[in-house]
Design a protein around this nucleic acid. Sequence first.
DNA 1: TCTGGGGTCCTAGGACCC
DNA 2: TCTGGGGTCCTAGGACCC
Length: 416
Amino acid sequence: MFALVDGNNFYVSCERVFNPTLDEKPVVVLSNNDGCIISRSNEAKALGFKMGEPVFKRKELIEQNNVNVFSSNYTLYGDMSNRMMKTLKEFSPEVEVYSIDEAFLDLTGIQGNLEEYGQTIRATVYKNLGLPVGIGIANTKTLAKIANKIAKKQNGVFVIDSERIRDWALRNTPIEDVWGIGRQYAKMLTNMGVHTAYDFTRLDSNWVKDRMTVVGQRTREELLGLSCISLETIVKSKKNIATTRAFGKKLSDINTIAEAVATHAVRCAEKLRKQQSVANFVTVFIHTDPFNPNEKYIYRSVTVTMDEASNSNPDLAKAALAGLRKIYIPNILYKKTGVIVSEISSEKNIQGNLFKTTDREKLNKISKVTDSLNAKYGRDKLKLAVQGNKKEWKLKQEKLSPCFTTRWEDILKVKA
DNA sequence: TCTGGGGTCCTAGGACCC
DNA sequence: TCTGGGGTCCTAGGACCC
């Protein structure tokens, strides 16, 4: 049996933990650059705020209802997430951290009533962290997802442990709510009269494979109660790593854009080092505002191959900046840039370059010192000169809450 | 004025090999 | 009329997830 534990309105709930005056009030959390609404309290959902909506389109609704608005504070949410996962690991030896707010637990061998066990998990997470979660339990991950959705509408825990309940759950799950059925497939299926998860299971298996590949076929099997997707408890190293951001305002000057590109490249290097990998390719892209109908949309990108795979800040920044110079066109207002590294392999066995003698020892030492200083004194305390100081490209974060759990100055003060 | 930022997997088709 | 029969590798594009 699998349990899917999922934080309710996770980002909003994290904000509420440290600011109880937000309880029972409409709250929304925005995406980077304060662009879209990406987390909503139940009260905000009731007011009609939609997931992913651009916030500027709902200014009025926000003001009329005194909605509390926050920039996203990933430092806080990430730390709360780690703490939540730690608590969950007390309840199962096998935990797959599926996303920042979700985890699958292997409940094989748990004695006694699973519904009660779920309620105990819920209560413990709430006691330890103040975060509300919903828990779905079933014998396949896809069914656990469905159970989780039902749990949130009921008392927080729902168990699918009989054919009768499975049947009922499938008949009451709209096809677009099934894990693995996205917008395109939902549209196609609805047009054919497939409206619920139950309808989907009635389709011919080969027909499903023809039109939705083996992935769709697996989803169907999982809904039927045949487990095809196993628990993945080992964190796999990433095959691509990206750092991309829109600018706070549109930019044209190459030097300012270069600061952003160098900083994104350094961020990629840090992520590589964290998983003990090196990358061979560095892709840089830059584009104008895709939403402005009055200007031509321009998107340019290039992939630079480095002489040797690397994870050092200067190597990646150098490659990324060389790429930027290739694609940059002057006198254009750009909106966003990003760096993506790929062809990732282990840092333990790097393929050397015959014509280059890299002092890798030295580079690694520099990286170690840089990482430890920055861990202690804050991100980018030690940085490359090309990363600049002006931060003109930085994103908007006008409504950021403090980093309550990760920064000494931000610790909550209580008056007694 | 204003619209996020990450990832993964699968398949078809083309280029190439013998 | 009729045009072999295997393979591999790579890429682009499309689907999905949070």
